[in-house]
Design a binder for these strands. Sequence first.
RNA 1: GGUACCUUGGCCGAGCGGCUAGGCACUGGUCUGCAAAACCAGGUACGGCGGUUCGAAUCCGCCAGGUACCUCCA
Length: 501
Amino acid sequence: MTNKLTIYNSLSRKKEVFEPIHAPHVGLYVCGPTVYGDAHLGHARPAITFDVLFRTLSHLKYKVRYVRNITDVGHLEHDADEGEDKVAKRARLEQLEPMEVVQRNVNNYHREMEALNVLPPSIEPHASGHIIEQIELVKEILKNGYAYESQGSVYFDVAKYNKDYNYGKLSGRNIEDMLSTTRVLDGQQEKHNSADFALWKNAQPEHIMRWPSPWGNGFPGWHCECTAMGRKYLGSEFDIHGGGMDLLFPHHECEIAQAVASQGHDMVRYWMHNNMITINGTKMGKSLGNFILLKEFFDGSHKLLEKAYSPMTIRFFILQAHYRSTVDFSNEALQASEKGLQRLLEAYENLERLSTTTTSDKAKEVDAQVAAIKEKCYDALLDDLNTPIVIAHLFDGCKLINTLAAGKGEISDEGLAELKATFDLFMFDLLGLRQEHGQSNDSSNEREHAFGQVVDMLLEQRMQAKANKDWATSDKIRDNLQALGFEIKDSKEGSTWRLNK
RNA sequence: GGUACCUUGGCCGAGCGGCUAGGCACUGGUCUGCAAAACCAGGUACGGCGGUUCGAAUCCGCCAGGUACCUCCA
């Protein structure tokens, strides 16, 4: 592989060649979930997108420190200044400790990410565990004159900042219009300007989640955590910051402002944003109430789902679209993904059965095809993580394997090894797909194994019947197995089966 | 209202000025005792109207429709 990784930088709105600041080290920060509820399909997208990035960077021999935070404080509902803390609200409703809510949802999130084969990040810091760092950040911004204290809260002075720097450079909005139109409205409000955002919020004693600070008891503003924790673990300048497109404004814009206001220069080189998952053409979002939980996909319990979809189907479905495109949920699309993935995985299994030849022009041709597939997969992945193209080339490999398995064409030992290596690398290591084994605990594996042997036994009897041209018996066995959900595939070597869900 | 973005064959979804994307579904064929699976073949799609160009799904303009952000959201 000779090409370099290019990524689309939201800041420049262009694809750029990725050059780490301190090679071979790479700092990657991604906004993780606010843990006040279960993860839905929308959460899977950034997790999977940046998981592929993490895997790709690691494969390119970079030493990646991947930080994905847990927001467990400071994220308010509704209006950023009036709303209730999301976690605190949930705790109140369920009569739990806030940290009980946090722990439960973090546990669930981890379980679901594991099911999706999303690798754990290097560090997963909690906002609540970094109050001191956030207070320090606020102090620095105050000291530099880009914030003001007001009734126990501290607000970022957007107008002042915008005079010296450029507030809005990431989201591309012209903040001057906003500032001039809104200035008239307030005067006696806490904020000087409605565009200003909270760095620290005063909290009354009845508020459970509050910490002491130079400005009184309170809690940090939402945007502070990422700036403070990103800097703590990745340094005052690091490579990549990712997250969903909906966070671009205000969250990431504010992060930039906070970083620049505190340290005088940018903290992040490349900003990456994944697009949204839509449902009937509209964004899937908690506030819209049209979201489907990941666990509902896995067990098929949501009313919009025709059936359950496995975690790998979800992962494959997401990877079949480019991360910067919206992708629309539908049962039809999901089922298409399910079948496509199955086809790939079965082709991989067929690799085991291929025989090789040592010398043949035909084999050389096939070997060349294999090399081309590998090369194209690399090119696609390094081109801003174009996973749909990678998958398209894997399907080419899939066709090649099946053709060989059908006894047409030849492949050399080396070609076969290369083909397998290509699938191992791209399908499993980089795209992070995996074969799904029903249950992973041993006792059920034993049971499944025993059931499998029973099916094998039946198929053996069917082979006997076929050998005797006793079609009635052989068809009866096949039809009965099919009625139970088994798919039977015949070939010259014998029959194989698969249990369809 | 402001700012971005999107509109591709039955469905999903790549594409970034010329070369078959791919998957699912469908149709025909090969194989098979019959099926299934697999393989082969088949459909020349780019919202509309103009423009630039030897050449446009791809660039420009207008129009139509849609989405996102501007308030919490991955």
